[in-house]
């Protein structure tokens, strides 16, 4: 289907980015410390940006190049800086994170989710180009895995980073299936991500100050008794 040799190189690189992107989702589950989670998130965003740029070359879409630039600025540079400013205390607490379900079982569950995503995407991508066939299942899988990570993580910041990873997954799929998505939509999403970091970062600092830790998973005062 792809004839030009350059195209096949670009496709291969795009697939590679997809693989690394998915690995970062797994890393977010397995990371033992808050800073580790953060590094995996930043890496994932970097791969997202690379993939956007590669897809931009494949689809001749200048929008996607701008999108890649926006990702780099917002997610790779701004978010770590913002987080370090708003949630410094929770961030530098160097202790091992607790999880509701252990890391190996979580990884296996995440693998299962990847398969589910693959089979959901399979009928939709029939006849689509190779970017879509890779992007949609990987993006869906990243969304599912990140949603699962939110439920097993008990600390505020890892939960928040998984939340942002969902957005990454959505856009990994989005860049592939809708390369001409209005730029205003991408900007809206990035604005939203930054607001999430600001608001939840400040909130987690408040939680940290009032409770001494950020194990929000063990907050169970409220509830219908």
């Amino acid at each position: 289907m792809v004839t030009h040799p350059i195209m096949s190189w670009l496709n291969a690189w795009n697939q590679l980015m997809a693989g690394f992107f998915l690995l970062c989702s797994f890393g977010l589950i397995a990371a033992a410390q808050v800073t580790g989670c953060m590094r995996f998130y930043v890496l994932q965003s970097l791969f997202l940006a690379c993939s956007a740029a590669l897809l931009g070359m494949l689809d001749n879409s200048t929008d996607l190049f701008m999108v890649a630039g926006i990702y780099i600025i917002a997610k790779v540079i701004l978010i770590p800086v913002l987080l370090k400013r708003t949630a410094r205390e929770a961030m530098i607490a160097r202790r091992e994170l607790v999880q509701v379900i252990g890391v190996p079982s979580s990884l296996l569950i995440a693998l299962g989710l990847t398969l589910v995503a693959y089979y959901i995407a399979l009928p939709l991508t029939a006849g689509a180009n190779s970017g879509t066939r890779i992007g949609l299942p990987i993006g869906l899988a990243a969304v599912f895995i990140a949603a699962y990570t939110i439920t097993v993580r008990r600390e505020a910041l890892p939960q928040m980073l998984s939340l942002l990873a969902i957005e990454n997954g959505a856009f990994f799929a989005g860049d592939a299936i809708a390369p001409h998505f209005p730029l205003i939509g991408e900007l809206a999403a990035v604005f939203d991500v930054l607001m999430i970091v600001l608001v939840l970062g400040v909130l987690s600092t408040q939680v940290h100050r009032s409770l001494g830790n950020t194990t929000v998973g063990s907050l169970a005062q409220l509830g219908e008794d």
Binding site: I166, E167, A170, V216
Partner: peptide, 15 residues
């Protein structure tokens, strides 16, 4: 957390 999670899922739907 939960409502933003919902919004992120909706974003995928929008795309």
């Amino acid at each position: 957390l939960l409502t933003t999670l919902g919004a992120a899922l909706a974003l995928l739907g929008i795309l």
